[in-house]
């Protein structure tokens, strides 16, 4: 997750970058470098409780916006942002998670469009890689477990199939002369 959030935190004006689950649970967070250097002017979200509350409220807002546009037959918004008197919140939907960035006042949201797109793609790539690794680890043959239903069946090492030793002989010729 660090490789997803780090490029965002290096951007000027970024206070906080977050990955939040769709139900508002914080998955990862990183503080912006500009925030660290100049101190947080517009309020802090330093403690864990505050961060959790922030994530919950932000995800709740995303959900409410989705609920508001749902009767219009609009699909779930891919990205929502809100520029306010004391900062800007930008949220982008990724698969099964939301990427959120809190900006200082005066930062233009457009400047964040490309980096957030890249971060979302990186997150998606990480997720896919994780799925592939998980699948391959599950597919490893186990030697400790009990034998299968058919002890005579030998499992192929790549898990792609099974060789069955059959005693039935197939005639080489059809027998018709």
């Amino acid at each position: 997750m660090k490789d997803v959030l780090d490029p965002l935190t290096r951007l000027p004006g970024v206070r906080l970058a977050l990955i939040v689950s769709e139900d508002g649970v914080p998955i990862a967070s990183a503080k912006g470098e500009s925030s660290k250097s100049r101190g947080d002017e517009e309020g802090n979200t330093d403690s864990d409780e505050e961060l959790e509350a922030f994530c919950g409220l932000a995800a709740g807002w995303y959900d409410e916006v989705h609920r508001a546009v749902d009767p219009l037959s609009w699909d779930r918004p891919s990205s929502i942002s809100m520029r306010c008197a004391r900062g800007t919140l930008v949220m982008q939907s990724c698969e099964r998670a939301i990427l959120a960035v809190l900006l200082h006042r005066g930062v233009v949201v457009e400047e964040l469009r490309l980096p957030m797109g890249s971060a979302a793609a990186r997150l998606e790539r990480n997720r896919r890689r994780g799925v592939v690794q998980e699948t391959s680890s599950q597919a490893q043959p186990s030697t400790d477990g009990p034998p299968g239903l058919f002890p005579g069946v030998s499992q192929s090492p790549d898990g792609s199939g099974a060789d069955v030793n059959s005693t039935n002989e197939v005639p080489e010729t059809s027998g018709e002369r």
Binding site: V65, V69, W74, D75, R76, P77, S78, S79, I80, S81, M82, R83, C84, A85, V109
Partner: peptide
């Protein structure tokens, strides 16, 4: 809030 933006399909 001063500006709200919502993007999608």
């Amino acid at each position: 809030p001063e500006e709200i933006r919502c993007e999608g399909g």
